[in-house]
């Protein structure tokens, strides 16, 4: 598809539902509702909150009740389209899908997911992107359409039946045949992009073992001391999905709602049970849970860690506790105590 036709293509997509895309707001990007093509800005590395906000919103009600009776609140049927999603965030959605749509389906997630159309967009890395290390810099499925932006044109991948439907409708905007030169240009771009990554997690493939060997390491203590227990890491992480459930009663004391909201295992009381017994009373224990669950335990459960290398923890943790600092510190610890990492 040539670039001139892109606005028209966006217009067509907009007719399918509520359109969201990356918008620049005060130097930061965020997925916002798009009224006009000019609002879209695809030249970005990462939004503050990942597209998880469309499928597991930060807060939503699941039950509405009055004095005598209650009704389940399911999400609206309105289709939502999110454009400009980068490969890392698509990988993150795949991870969430596995959790929420696995053996036991979550009805709220399933409904939102069903109504979400994902249109991916290629990106170029900055110094915080570590998706090459995590193997999530490319994506082959998990989207409906994926646009790769090259100098004069877009290459469009179709990833689902829904995506195919849109592509067929946009037939007159798309060129059917991709020339040999265009493919060559894509390959060149791909190679160039791969060489642009400046940050990596060298120990990534050994991380599960490293964490296991370091379970009692002082490193956790040091990070725990620095951690503010603010929960920012969970808020911005595209795969953090833990939720809390709370009931709210309206002022008239006759009706209310049950709300589900994002929670974070780094917050106090996360593991506290009735009777005030807290299984993880200190920050060290909670931070350890965050990183071991994400980088180690997920492998046992789903075959891969749940970090997609988006760099959000690197960009937003106020005290520099992130996937790089944690894994490097643990890696160094192993190197000090054991001679296992000569390679």
């Amino acid at each position: 598809m040539s670039k001139e036709k892109f606005p028209e293509f966006v217009e067509l997509i907009k007719s399918k539902g509520k359109l969201f895309g990356p918008v620049k707001q005060k130097e930061k990007y965020s997925f916002e509702e798009i009224k006009d093509f000019s609002e879209l800005d695809f030249d970005y590395q990462r939004t503050i909150i990942s597209p998880k906000k469309f499928i597991t919103p930060a807060k939503y009600s699941t039950l509405r009740f009055v004095k005598f009776g209650q009704t389940e609140v399911l999400p609206d049927d309105e289709p939502q389209i999110v454009m400009g999603v980068h490969p890392c965030d698509i990988h993150a959605i795949k991870i969430l899908d596995r959790l929420f749509l696995g053996n036991i389906k979550d009805p709220y997630y399933a409904k939102r997911r069903e109504n979400l159309i994902i249109i991916g967009h290629s990106c170029l890395p900055d110094d915080k992107c570590v998706c090459q290390s995590t193997g999530t810099d490319m994506v082959e499925d998990g989207f409906d359409l994926f646009l790769t932006e090259l100098d004069d044109f877009y290459l469009l991948w179709v990833g689902s039946d829904k995506g195919l439907g849109i592509a067929i409708e946009a037939e007159n905007l798309l060129e059917e045949n991709v020339s040999e030169e265009e493919i060559q240009e894509y390959v060149r771009w791909q190679q160039e992009r791969s060489s642009m990554f400046t940050t990596s997690i060298p120990s990534y493939k050994y991380l599960a073992d490293i964490i296991h060997l370091n379970y009692d390491s002082d490193v956790w203590e040091q990070f725990g001391e620095k951690c503010l227990s603010c929960g920012t890491c969970s808020l911005v992480c595209p795969t953090c999905n833990c939720f809390h459930v709370d009931d709210k009663i309206m002022m008239n004391a006759e009706e209310g709602i049950r709300e589900r909201m994002l929670d974070s295992c780094t917050l106090p009381y996360y593991s506290m049970v009735a009777g005030n017994h807290d299984f993880r009373p200190d920050r060290t224990a909670r931070l350890k849970l965050y990183y071991t669950h994400k980088l180690k335990e997920y492998i046992g459960r789903w075959g891969q860690p749940s970090c997609v290398g988006c760099g959000r923890c690197i960009a937003y943790c106020p005290v520099d506790i992130n996937v790089i600092t944690v894994s490097n510190a643990l890696f160094e610890e192993v190197c000090e105590t054991q001679e296992v990492c000569d390679q």
Partner: peptide, 12 residues
């Protein structure tokens, strides 16, 4: 343990 969902989703 603390639990919210009972279905392996809430993480607690």
């Amino acid at each position: 343990r603390r639990m919210k969902c009972g279905q392996g989703h809430c993480g607690h």
